[in-house]
Computed example of a mutant assay.
Amino acid sequence: MSNSELMSIGAFAQRSGVTASALRFYADSGLLAPAEIDPVSGYRYYSGDQVARASVVRRLREIGMPLGAVGAVLDAGVGEAARLVDEHVAKVVGDAAVAQQKAAVIKSVLGDVPGLLVAVLKGPVLADAVEQVLTAAVHEPGMPVLAGLRIEASHEAVTLTATDRYRLATRTLVSAEPPARAWAGTVSGDELRTAVAGIRRSALVRLEAGRHGVRFRVAGGEDRYCRLLSEPFPDHRLMLASLGEVTTRVTVAKEPLLRVLEEQAGERVSLRVAEGGVDVVSGDDEDRRIRLPATASGRSLRVWFELTTLYPAVSTAIGPDVMLDLRGGDQPVTIRSADRGDLTTLAMPVKPAPSV
Score class of each variant (00 low, 15 high):
284 D>R: 15
125 V>Y: 00
60 L>T: 11
332 P>R: 05
59 R>V: 05
103 A>S: 15
17 G>W: 05
174 V>S: 15
187 V>D: 04
241 A>Y: 00
252 V>M: 04
122 K>W: 05
217 R>P: 06
89 V>G: 01
135 T>C: 10
305 F>Y: 09
122 K>F: 09
324 L>C: 12
146 L>G: 00
39 P>V: 12
7 M>H: 01
198 G>V: 09
345 T>P: 07
283 G>P: 14
96 A>N: 12
333 V>F: 04
196 V>I: 12
29 S>Q: 14
107 K>P: 05
239 M>F: 01
319 G>M: 11
340 R>K: 08
149 L>W: 03
328 G>D: 03
344 T>I: 11
281 V>G: 04
239 M>P: 00
88 H>I: 03
314 V>W: 00
252 V>I: 12
98 V>W: 08
286 E>C: 00
253 A>Y: 01
13 A>C: 01
182 A>K: 04
329 G>P: 07
234 P>Y: 00
53 R>Y: 12
165 R>C: 05
88 H>T: 04
47 S>H: 13
23 L>Y: 13
140 E>R: 06
217 R>V: 15
318 I>T: 15
188 S>W: 08
346 L>W: 05
4 S>I: 09
50 Q>M: 09
304 W>L: 08
329 G>Y: 01
163 T>W: 00
195 A>V: 12
229 L>G: 03
249 R>C: 13
49 D>T: 14
15 R>S: 13
186 T>H: 00
250 V>T: 14
109 V>D: 10
180 A>G: 14
292 L>E: 04
112 D>V: 13
274 A>P: 03
109 V>N: 10
16 S>R: 03
19 T>E: 13
121 L>M: 02
231 E>F: 06
151 I>V: 15
22 A>L: 12
299 R>K: 07
39 P>C: 11
97 A>L: 13
102 K>C: 07
75 D>R: 15
55 S>W: 09
231 E>R: 03
46 Y>K: 06
177 E>W: 06
296 A>D: 03
229 L>S: 02
204 L>W: 08
1 M>L: 01
106 I>L: 13
291 R>Y: 02
32 L>Q: 03
147 A>F: 02
328 G>R: 07
160 L>D: 06
170 T>C: 08
95 D>V: 09
48 G>P: 13
36 E>S: 14
316 T>I: 11
112 D>I: 12
165 R>Y: 03
338 A>L: 01
13 A>Q: 04
44 R>V: 02
92 V>L: 09
292 L>Q: 04
349 P>L: 02
30 G>Y: 05
269 V>E: 05
353 A>M: 08
353 A>R: 12
187 V>Y: 07
216 F>I: 05
157 A>H: 13
284 D>K: 10
18 V>P: 04
